[in-house]
Computed example of a mutant assay.
Amino acid sequence: MVRIPLTPEQVEAGRRLGALLREARAGRDPELVARAAGISPETLRKIEAGRMPSPGFGTVVGLCEALHLPVQTAASIWLGSADDAEQLAG
């Protein structure tokens, strides 16, 4: 199967999502957060660093649950609507 390259916008969306998740983790042990989300610590590192710009929906949901972060907030950040994310988080 050939993967279609991501657009620059998709790569940037992955960076925004990674930054949000890193901020939401706020110093908590990444291994514990990853395990609670049902993913490997390496996968969490890749997502937070923006090296995995399009994680699966289940992965994002698991991380949101582990971090007590509304999925709507993550979706708004990923879609580039920071104002909406602030309103949802606040």
Rank of each mutant, 00 (worst) to 15 (best):
L69K: 06
A19P: 02
R3P: 00
G56I: 00
G80Q: 10
F57C: 12
D29W: 01
V61K: 11
E31Y: 10
R22Q: 12
A82V: 14
V71N: 05
A26P: 10
P5K: 09
A24F: 06
S81H: 15
G50F: 13
L21A: 09
A19Y: 05
E9Y: 02
D84M: 08
L21W: 07
P8D: 14
L88S: 00
A37I: 03
A89N: 13
G58T: 09
D84T: 14
G90P: 08
G27I: 07
V60M: 02
T73G: 04
E65R: 15
P8E: 15
L6N: 09
E48G: 04
T7R: 10
G14I: 03
R22E: 09
T43W: 03
G56N: 02
K46H: 13
G90S: 12
I77V: 15
D83L: 08
G27V: 08
P30C: 12
G90T: 04
D84Q: 13
Q10S: 11
Q10C: 02
V61H: 12
R3D: 00
V2C: 01
R45N: 06
R22C: 04
T59S: 14
G80A: 10
G62H: 06
R35V: 07
G14F: 01
T73P: 02
A37Y: 05
R22N: 06
A13L: 08
T73S: 13
Q10Y: 00
A37D: 05
A75R: 13
R22S: 12
A75C: 09
R15K: 14
R16D: 05
A74V: 12
L44W: 09
G58R: 05
T59W: 05
S76R: 11
V2S: 13
G58L: 09
P70H: 10
R22L: 08
L20V: 09
L32G: 15
E42S: 12
E9A: 15
G80Y: 10
P8I: 03
C64A: 12
V61S: 09
G38R: 10
L63Y: 07
L69G: 04
S81D: 15
T43D: 06
L32D: 15
L20S: 03
L6R: 13
R15E: 04
K46R: 15
A13Y: 05
M52V: 04
D29M: 00
R15L: 03
